[in-house]
């Protein structure tokens, strides 16, 4: 536990550049997506508890305002994780592109935000 805390302190306090923060966001979004998948599997399993529980989860809880806000975070997480993963794969196969990595991260973030904004508006339409 002490080693984990020390590592987290290093990660947060290190003054890295775009690659460092993209890596951190990649990890956080990965954890968020894993958490969502666990919730998703559990809620599908709830069908075994009868229609009342299942319908409550899917027709009341998941369409509530807090759930929609979480969904917006999920959209950003999935978009960023996918785009950043693609960036890493491309650089792995073309290591020479590494010298442009700071620009590539900025372009990647711009593309993610451009896709994210309309997706977030559509998702929040019902609750705004």
């Amino acid at each position: 536990m002490g080693a984990l805390v020390e590592t987290l302190r290093y990660v947060i306090s290190y003054r890295g550049t775009e690659g460092h923060w993209a890596w951190l966001l990649h990890r956080l979004s990965g954890l968020g997506i894993a958490l969502f998948l666990s919730m998703h599997i559990i809620s599908i399993f709830s069908v075994g508890l009868g229609p009342r529980v299942y319908n409550f989860l899917h027709e009341v809880l998941y369409v509530s305002a807090p759930a929609k806000v979480l969904e917006v975070f999920l959209i950003f997480g999935v978009l960023f994780h996918a785009a950043n993963g693609m960036r890493i794969i491309v650089i792995d196969f073309f290591p020479g592109l590494g010298k442009y990595q700071r620009t590539i991260v900025r372009i990647e973030l711009l593309v993610v935000i451009l896709v994210f904004i309309p997706a977030a508006i559509i998702t929040l339409q019902g609750v705004l």
Partner: peptide, 17 residues
């Protein structure tokens, strides 16, 4: 592929490459 090594290298080696 974090690139901290490239930034840190005082000899400016393209470490990640």
């Amino acid at each position: 592929t974090v690139f901290n090594c490239v930034q840190a290298c005082p000899r400016e080696i393209d470490v990640t490459k």
